[in-house]
Design a protein around this nucleic acid. Structure first.
Lengths: 150, 150
DNA sequence: TTAGATGCAAATAGTTTGCATTTGT
DNA sequence: ACAAATGCAAACTATTTGCATCTAA
């Protein structure tokens, strides 16, 4: 994992917000999810860990985390519910299996060059990016090959 | 605008789906919106054009268009509802202004190389990717510079 | 002709709000 | 101590579904 749990805590504190019990649980659930989770899944995970935490708090926390850049909501595939993607400091991206939803992390990415070019070309000032690849993981490749289901 | 209306129709037909009245109206509304629109706005526009078209059809159409790649739902700003962005043929990515939510499209991206490497390395089979840059657009850069709000 | 698409309205799911209470600093 | 955060439950909004009917190919 690219960033430690305490690293996320530090970012939260740094943002000037309180380090509450609920937020720590949400942080842990986000990490446990591999950094890629829908609000509904997060709700389940958090309430499994501590059923005393309300849904409203989770949404408010997601909102806060989005504002301070810990997480980024994204629509994936056809789903109308956002998937929240952890935005660690430094590079960190995903390959997501469209069949079994396995998330594989990688950090190699060569976008600095492109980013620099875009900044000049569009006259913008970029501060981050999100890159995700979609496809079949090794297992799902094997299964789909077996079934000739191409 | 990058692609003609008839180009979109062609893509729809090519996908093996029927070219129905409702779909044509939705296509027109998407184009008229400048290629960035929420489901709610689309609903209004479409029903203004033809009040006989039901909400369900619009959602089903949006779903279809997403599946065949005519449109891509994107999470913009604080809005709870996805913004659907018209996807021209070929690659297509976004720079999203984190201040005013302006979406700038670009299609240059050099990820084939990385994709190929990842496929070999992780033994996966990739079929698509999502790349988004976040930062300040030209106008918001200017404003933030003016205010010394760095 | 017929599989696929539609409209309607009711059912779901996802998200937000107000307010009294609790908690982190 | 006190502003910020929380839990609850109700209110809302957005999206989906079932089914009879219609339509593009």
């Amino acid at each position: 994992m690219a960033e430690s749990h305490s690293g996320l805590r530090a970012r939260l504190k740094r943002s000037g917000h309180k380090l509450t019990h609920a937020r720590i649980i949400v942080l842990a659930a986000l990490e446990a999810s591999g950094g890629h989770i829908t609000s509904t899944e997060l709700l389940e995970r958090v309430q499994a860990a501590d059923s005393g935490i309300g849904r409203a708090t989770i949404f408010r926390t997601l909102d806060l985390f989005t504002r301070i850049g810990i997480v980024r909501p994204t629509y994936i595939g056809t789903s109308t519910t956002p998937t929240y993607v952890l935005m660690p400091e430094g590079h960190h991206h995903h390959v997501i299996c469209t069949n079994c939803n396995l998330v594989i992390e990688f950090d190699e990415c060569d976008l600095d060059d492109l980013a620099t070019r875009l900044e000049a070309q569009l006259n913008v000032q970029l501060s981050g990016h999100l890159l995700e690849f979609y496809g079949l993981c090794a297992d799902c490749c094997a299964i789909s090959a077996e079934q000739g289901d191409d």
